[in-house]
Design a protein around this nucleic acid. Structure first.
Lengths: 211, 211
DNA sequence: TAGATTGTTAATCGATTAACAATC
DNA sequence: TAGATTGTTAATCGATTAACAATC
């Protein structure tokens, strides 16, 4: 724990990118790769790649480089992909439904188990195999079904209330798509996907590139 | 341009957050705010807030702080929100449709004009007022309609081909939701929303928080 | 004017890059 | 063994924080 906590967010956010590129290499049947070669395709410096990986252990071999399959699996384990995760989605609007349908998550062992909404028109519907349930049943559901993570896809005004409810139910991990910053206890992990922030950054870069 | 280019990405990515919090304050009828007060609600240090803002000009007043409305408008201008933007979406699947429906973008002056897909079942359908058109017509459409930005919502395998096509049509700004890194010329801006990377980072944090 | 708070310079901290001895 | 490339330490770079004079 002490050692883990010392790993910076900068490093952690690069891990999924390593994972993705290594999967690519694996699919192209490439058996080994040096930090220099990986640098050429992923765009980080070779030095940074070696530094990053050495936070978690010495996966390479001098004079050889890294075994692609082994490194891919190790990084998968580091990320926690050796387990499956049960997810619920709160807010069954367009975005919630899109995420329920998004197969890239399922491939990695994330399974959307149920969706919740307060809109009576949506309750009872099924998106793929996932039923949209009444928000009133969420506590019962979470406790019964050992849910790992919750995705908030509500509007900004409901998001904090929903988060409070989730925390109450014992959820420790919230992936938040609502355009607001949630207040939660220290032991609850929140990862934000702030689409508007991404769009505005993008717009700034576009605008200034034209000047 | 020279001055602009010196502004670090770290600062640029904080701008949308200032913009959002200032809008909040404005809606709550708060007229002025000091860097210290803003620090308390936004979570950056007061020092960082003053540093950030001073990259773009002296918006504050000693002994007073910042005028909320003025600062909100100034940051909006810096981000390029004093203009409207025409957007097309390529890939009219669940995610593309969800983004076409996402009203938070329209509020800020972003208008989705058309969607494109290669699936004959989708072509001709309308999502809200937005027609799904045949990918074959994209070049003609972009040239005729002065499109500013394109959103890629295809799968990873088509994304690079779509990007090439967009660059060919003269598009200079691509918001990419496909789980891959696009190769484009230097004068084309790409902003990625890598959902899988966010999910895996999130999973890592969740996993390690339990250890 | 006195108090408050900015704008800005200097100090610190952390992350990235460079270098190289260790070793496969 | 010789060549290649890692793991790791040291140097550099950039971003954040602290401090304070300027000034409203």
């Amino acid at each position: 724990m002490d050692r883990k906590n010392r790993i910076s967010m900068a490093v952690i956010r690069r891990l999924p990118k390593y994972h993705r590129y290594l999967k690519d290499l694996l699919e192209r049947d490439i058996k080994r790769i040096s930090s220099k070669e990986l640098s050429d395709i992923i765009g980080f410096t070779a030095s940074q790649i070696r530094q990053d990986l050495n936070n978690f252990g010495g996966f390479g071999q001098q004079g050889y480089g890294y075994n692609v399959e082994e490194l891919y699996k190790e990084i998968g384990k580091i990320l926690g992909l050796d387990k499956n995760y049960k997810i619920i989605i709160i807010g069954a609007g367009n975005l919630g439904q899109a995420l329920a349908n998004y197969t890239n998550f399922q491939k990695e062992g994330f399974h959307v188990d149920a969706m919740f909404d307060i809109n009576p028109r949506l309750i009872g519907l099924k998106i793929r195999d996932v039923e949209i349930m009444d928000m009133d049943n969420i506590e019962e559901y979470v406790i019964k079904n050992n849910v790992d993570m919750a995705i908030i896809c509500t509007n900004k005004d409901s998001a904090q209330d929903v988060a409070n409810k989730l925390v109450e139910c014992g959820i420790k991990a919230i992936w938040n798509f609502a355009p607001t910053d949630l207040k939660v206890p220290d032991d609850v992990i929140v990862e934000n996907v702030h689409l508007v922030e991404s769009l505005l950054t993008f717009t700034y870069l576009y605008k200034t590139s034209k000047e």
